[in-house]
Amino acid sequence: MSMDYKKFSRRVLCLALLMPVSTVAAELTVAVASNFTAPAKYLAEEFEAQSEHQVRLVFGSSGRFFAQISNGAPFDLFFSADQEKPQELIENGLAIDDSLFTYALGGLVLWSRDEQLIQSSPAVLSSNQFSRLSIANARHAPYGIAAEEVLSNLNLLANLQSKLVRGENIAQTFQFVFTGNAELGFVAKSQVYQDDILISGSAWQVTEDLYSPIRQDAVLLQRASTNDAALAFLAFVRSSRGRSIIRSYGYVVGD
């Protein structure tokens, strides 16, 4: 028993000696709103390639992340789908005030898998060509609030009420349309466009005068205030390379 232990501790010592004396590499965990899934993966991949750091991405709804962060979840950065939640975290002393910035403005798209259904206009919404319209839940999802705003500006909200199905977040809203259970839905532009080209199906890019801008804020969380990896990742996201990656997924990014 004691022999084994000695052998074991010698091995551990050898391993420890092989490690670099001071480790520059650090790991960070980022909570990302589901609409930003694709660009976040791409950003993390490129960031990891050019630095020593490791990025762990967690995707989900901003509301759930808010609740988790308020209860001590081990996240370093929070990329919310709105502005209210990061702001409230700052007010609650859980996030760092001067790290707050708008990383993207989301675009809203009416999308269908059927290539014929949407003629680059909202005309289909006042037709009888569909039985289910998928939108995100407007009670807490920013893309859902925007979708209801569009419908009410088009004077269609009351008429379409019985056809609405609500996803818990924009990922599920997309999933309902993707599986064909809803013929069309209001999804995030980042989910169906790549480099300004529609990946599949048919779509109408909702004109910006029909909904208030979907400003998405990111914030450094209190526990990571001295985490070099987190600061480096934020700097990368704000760099011109980072911004052009975000733009390529259909978001508008300020200069």
């Binding site: 709804s61 509301g63 998928s134 807490h140 199905v165 996803g167 818990e168 259970n181 809803a182």
Partner: peptide
């Protein structure tokens, strides 16, 4: 229910989904 429901009041919005919604909307 969350996967196949679509959160329609009176049709598929059951209590467990309603609780989830309250939490998401920060209505603790």
């Amino acid at each position: 229910v969350l996967m196949i429901g679509g959160n329609i009041p009176g049709e598929t919005r059951v209590v467990s989904v309603q609780i989830y919604d309250h939490v998401e909307a920060l209505a603790y």
